[in-house]
Design a protein around this nucleic acid. Structure first.
Lengths: 155, 155
DNA sequence: TGACAATACAAGTTATAACATGTAATCTCC
DNA sequence: GGAGATTACATGTTATAACTTGTATTGTCA
């Protein structure tokens, strides 16, 4: 039996509504997940955001993506993609190049080092993912995914 | 029908596993929620973390809580409760007092101004909560809560 | 009871997030 | 084709998060 959230956060009072408990559950679960994933990534010199950028750029292939496009694909929107990519260029996992067709654009691409780093850390993250979500059935996962999509898609 | 997460993040490839999609769903939903709640709180000069501290301290009543206890009750653990409470003391929503019985402790309490602020913002946050979670049935909410508790409670 | 460990917080430092503003390049449309 | 709007990014600033180290107080136990 999973522990009660109220007990986990040492709350004295019960939640006023089930929707309030659901909201806190989502945020608390994300915090636990992100913390654990960041712990896995830290020895590799990556944050979770940077890891996501690498996955996005790998998915984009040789043509790369401009900063705005990277920002649109991130799980949580970062208003400062410029410096995020700049830091990643400093560590050598990303290359940046000003586009000749439209000189406003800076195209970012994953480097070979970035690709190797990505391949090294991904299985470690999958261990966390399986440990966390492995006990849920496929149908329970699908139910959760659909319900969360409903939460994001408000009027 | 809720929009697909893959489309939402403009992913070209489908998720490798349902558990991977579930993990991203949780983090993405929390990010959307937290952003919206912070937007509501900002005009009141509060962050979501500070709002949670106020709720925690109101729940503790007159006896208050020491910094460590506040930290244990927060949704996402903050390693720097000292300065968080210090900032909140500066804005007048919290008072701090060194405990005479154990002079290592600093007891924090919500002030009357903090209580009023809490009462002012809570209904605004509930509007967000209802808009986001209102379409889900009580049983769907309960299913989600249980599933998320399972995710947090790994071996 | 006195040395050592543990606890609770404070403070210093670095890195990042958040927000606003600035700037160069491109687009629009009369 | 040129003024103004738009886009994409860079930069400056402030605030907060994350991590480390420091310090005072209390607890433990030989």
């Amino acid at each position: 039996m999973p522990p009660d959230l109220r007990e986990e956060l040492k709350q004295t009072k019960p939640f006023a509504r089930r929707s309030a408990e659901a909201a806190v559950s989502v945020m608390r679960t994300a915090a636990v997940l992100e913390h654990e994933l960041n712990d896995v990534l830290k020895p590799h010199g990556l944050t979770l955001t940077q890891y996501n950028v690498l996955r996005i750029l790998r998915g984009a292939g040789n043509s790369g993506l401009c900063g705005r496009e990277v920002g649109e694909r991130l799980i949580s929107r970062v208003p400062d993609v410029s410096r995020l990519l700049e830091r990643m260029e400093d560590t050598g996992v990303v290359s940046r190049e000003r586009d000749d067709n439209d000189r406003r654009h800076v195209t970012a691409r994953i480097t070979e080092a970035g690709r190797r780093l990505l391949e090294a850390v991904t299985p470690e993250l999958e261990v966390v993912e399986r440990a966390r979500f492995g006990r849920l059935s496929e149908s329970a996962l699908q139910t959760m995914i659909t319900a969360l999509a409903n939460v994001r898609d408000r009027v």
